[in-house]
Amino acid sequence: MTRRIEERFKTLKEEGRPALVTFLMAGDPDGETALDIIKALPAAGADLIELGMPFSDPMADGPAIQEAGRRALHGGETLKKTLATVARFRESDPATPLILMGYFNPIYVYGVQAFVDAALKAGVDGLIVVDLPPEMDDELCLPALEKGLSFIRLATPTTDDHRLPAVLKNTSGFVYYVSITGITGSAAPDAKKVEAAVGRIKGHTDLPVCVGFGVRTAEQAAEIGKAADGVVVGSALVSAIASSLDEAGCATDKTRGAVAALVSNLAEGVRSARLAR
């Protein structure tokens, strides 16, 4: 059983600041470059890492993350390779929490129990599977929890007080609050609405609440971090990768540094939020 997520949030609470949670797509733009970028994230300021599992029908993802998934799949990324990337990351980083995020279909094809066992062996700490509602907890959530993997659930602006207990029932690690309705990266979050929503969720759970979807700048991260236990950034990071590639969609000498530079800037914003607490 892993407790990296719990330990990280405990440390951050003692420091009096929110977490910077970074999302990247496994295998984007290729396996080796992606691994190098992921390895650089903690030193750049990432407190937790979400790693996307590429899927051919990513219904909740915006254009930037969809394109990242297409690049990864075109390059031959598979769930088995993604797990191998996690294992290689763990060789040099035993402490940073790492969460796999994606859709159920690849996991179902892999085999649920085989996947859970392989994820634990590789060093995965938690799962976010966006198309599995609480009514389907028997499919993956409960088998994952039984083995010690956190299962992180999404709450949205449309998750009312009647629905929220069901969403939170088997959630562990943290709650991921989607700050806007729609797809990833489609709009900027409203800080006042986020603050009210986080407060409402915290009335139902002691778990940390992290806020994502639409956060792109250090200023936005700082503002959201005043209310949330963590700020999730994804589309901005995969866009930084995309803009660094050559005409053929391959990595350049700018690709590895582009993400680290942006994460460092975002980390400054998140860390400044401690002053407002």
Rank of each mutant, 00 (worst) to 15 (best):
R90E: 09
E14N: 14
P106A: 10
L262G: 08
F151E: 05
A191W: 02
N170V: 03
E219G: 08
M53Q: 01
A118S: 15
V178C: 05
L140C: 12
L120R: 13
I128W: 00
A227G: 06
L12G: 07
R70D: 01
V129G: 00
I5S: 02
L145I: 11
T255A: 12
A68P: 03
S172K: 14
A222Q: 14
G214D: 04
I107S: 04
D253S: 14
A276N: 05
Q220M: 13
S243M: 06
V259K: 02
G203C: 12
R163F: 12
D61T: 02
P18N: 03
P29N: 02
V112C: 05
L98Y: 04
E50K: 11
A218M: 07
P106V: 12
T205Y: 04
V211R: 05
K121C: 07
A251K: 12
V175I: 15
V116N: 08
A155T: 15
D131P: 01
T205P: 04
E15H: 03
M25H: 01
P208Q: 08
L12T: 08
A251F: 03
L140H: 06
A60Y: 02
P165M: 06
I224E: 08
G257A: 12
A248Y: 04
L237V: 06
G185V: 12
E14M: 11
A84W: 08
N105G: 14
R271C: 12
A155F: 09
H204N: 08
A64R: 04
G69S: 14
D190C: 04
E195C: 09
L41A: 11
T205K: 07
V211T: 14
P133V: 08
D206Q: 15
L154Q: 02
V129R: 00
S179Q: 02
T171R: 08
V175H: 09
E32V: 11
P106G: 13
G249D: 04
G212A: 01
P143C: 09
G230K: 10
D160I: 12
F174P: 02
V124W: 06
A68F: 02
K80P: 00
R200A: 14
D36Q: 15
Q113D: 15
V259Q: 01
S186C: 10
T181N: 15
V198C: 04
S179W: 02
F89L: 15
K193P: 04
F213G: 03
E146G: 10
S244I: 09
S172V: 12
Q113Y: 13
L120A: 07
V112D: 02
N265A: 13
